[in-house]
Structures are given as structure tokens and as C-alpha cells.
Computed example of a mutant assay.
Amino acid sequence: MPESKKRRKVADKEREYAKRAQNPEEDLKKQSPSWWAPLMVGLAIVGLIVVVTAYVTNGAFPIPGLPNGNINLFIGIGLMLIGFLMTMGWK
């Protein structure tokens, strides 16, 4: 009698869990480096600080002398975006 797809899927998952229990070093290799999370959070916070500073100073700071005041906003949003995109690679 053929096995159902669901039973086969459950049996495959059980084999995978048993394999992981036998070789925990592989799980450690799949983890992100220890600097990943602090960098990710740091970029998001620095980006937020840049955006708030640019709004409060009407685009004159944190980087003075840029031709357009909105460039400071783009820099801050870019930093936050990089931090957010890093969350997808965090394990």
C-alpha cells in the first residue's frame, strides 16, 4: 500500500531531525557570525539618528555642505534599509 504524501513528509522531517541531533557542528556552521546582529541593529539606529538630525536641522546636518539637503535623508534611509535587509540573513 503506497504511503500518503503527508506521512512521507513527516518521515522525511523525522530523519532530518535525527541527522541534526547526530551532527550539531553543522548547525553551528549555519549560524551568523557574532558581529552580524550588533552591526544590523547599529546600522538601523545610526540611520534613524541621521534621519532625525536631518529633519530637525532642515537637511543641513549631519553631513553639512551637501548640494541638496534631502541627501542626508537618503543616507539615513539607506543605512536603515541595509540594517533591515541584514535581518533576512540573520540565523
Rank of each mutant, 00 (worst) to 15 (best):
V52A: 13
Q31A: 13
F61H: 02
R20L: 09
M1W: 04
D27T: 03
S32M: 02
L73Q: 12
W35F: 14
K29R: 14
W90E: 06
Q31S: 13
F74K: 09
W36M: 07
V56Q: 08
E26Y: 05
P62L: 07
A11I: 01
S32W: 02
M80E: 14
G78K: 06
W36R: 08
I77C: 07
Q22W: 00
K13I: 14
V52W: 03
P62K: 04
G47C: 02
I75S: 04
M40F: 02
L43N: 11
R20D: 11
R20F: 09
V56Y: 08
P2K: 09
Q22N: 07
T53P: 04
L43A: 11
G59F: 02
L66E: 04
G83P: 09
G89K: 13
E26L: 10
V10E: 15
A21Y: 05
K9Q: 12
V51G: 04
L43D: 12
R15I: 02
V52Y: 04
L85V: 12
I77M: 11
S34C: 00
I63C: 03
N70G: 15
L66A: 03
M86Y: 10
R20N: 10
A44W: 05
K5Y: 10
V10F: 04
R8D: 05
L43W: 09
R8C: 01
V51Y: 01
N70F: 08
N70P: 00
A11Q: 07
T53H: 05
P38T: 11
E3H: 08
L48R: 01
S4W: 03
I82R: 03
A21M: 12
G76L: 06
G89N: 10
V51I: 12
P38M: 07
D12Q: 15
N23T: 10
P64G: 08
K13Q: 12
E16A: 13
T53V: 14
E14F: 06
G76M: 06
W35Q: 06
L79A: 13
W36L: 08
E14G: 00
G65W: 03
V10C: 00
N72P: 04
N58S: 14
A54K: 03
K29Y: 11
Q31E: 15
V52G: 01
W90R: 08
E14V: 13
L81Q: 06
G78E: 10
M1Y: 06
P67M: 03
S32Y: 01
R7M: 11
I63R: 04
R8T: 12
N68T: 03
V41W: 14
R20Q: 13
K30L: 13
V46L: 15
V10L: 11
A44R: 07
F84P: 00
I63N: 07
A44F: 13
R20E: 13
F74V: 11
S34G: 03
P2L: 07
A60Y: 05
L28A: 14
E25Y: 09
S4G: 15
P38R: 10
A11S: 05
P67H: 02
A44G: 11
